[in-house]
Computed example of a mutant assay.
Amino acid sequence: MPFKTLLTVTGPGHGDDDLRLAAGLCEEVNAHLSVLVLMLAAPPSGGEYAAVVSPAWLEEREAEMEDLERRSSAVSKMLSQSRVSADLSSDYPEQSWADEVVGRRARYADLTVVGPEMLATHLLKQKVIAGGLFSSGKPILLVPKAAPVTLKPKCVVVAWDASLEASRAVRESLEILSAADEARIVMIDPIEDERHHGAEPGADVATYLSRHGVKVAVDRLPSSNHFIADVLRQHAIDTGAELMIMGAYGHSRLRERIFGGVTKSLIEEPGLPILMAR
Score class of each variant (00 low, 15 high):
Arg104Thr: 05
Lys154Cys: 09
Ala146His: 14
Ala130Ile: 08
Arg107Leu: 00
Ser136Glu: 02
Thr121Arg: 10
Ala120Asp: 08
Ser90Leu: 07
Leu111Cys: 04
Asp91Phe: 02
Asp110Phe: 00
Met39Leu: 13
Glu66Tyr: 09
Val158Asp: 08
His122Asp: 13
Leu79Pro: 05
Ser136Leu: 01
Val53Lys: 03
Glu64Thr: 06
Met118Asn: 08
Ala147Trp: 02
Ser72His: 15
Val157Met: 06
Ala63Pro: 07
Val149Trp: 07
Val53Ala: 01
Ala56Ser: 11
Glu60Val: 12
Leu111Asn: 02
Leu141Lys: 00
Leu79Trp: 09
Ala42Gly: 12
Pro116Cys: 09
Val128Trp: 06
Val143Asp: 02
Asp67Trp: 11
Ala147His: 01
Lys154Asn: 15
Val75Asp: 01
Glu59Gly: 10
Tyr108Glu: 10
Glu64Ser: 09
Leu133Ser: 00
Glu94Arg: 05
Leu142Lys: 00
Ala146Ser: 13
Gly47His: 04
Gly137Ala: 00
Ser73Phe: 05
Leu119Trp: 13
Glu64Met: 10
Glu117Arg: 14
Met78Trp: 08
Arg107His: 03
Val113Tyr: 04
Ala42Val: 15
Ala56Arg: 12
Ala120Met: 14
Ala41Thr: 15
Ala146Phe: 09
Glu60Trp: 06
Gln126Gly: 14
Gly115Ser: 10
Val143His: 00
Leu88Tyr: 01
Ile140Arg: 03
Ala63Cys: 09
Val113Thr: 07
Glu117Gly: 08
Ile129Asp: 02
Glu69Asp: 13
Arg107Cys: 03
Leu124Asn: 12
Ile129Asn: 02
Ala50Phe: 11
Glu94Trp: 06
Glu66Asn: 14
Ser135Cys: 12
Val102Asn: 00
Tyr92Val: 04
Lys138Pro: 04
Asp99Asn: 15
Arg105His: 03
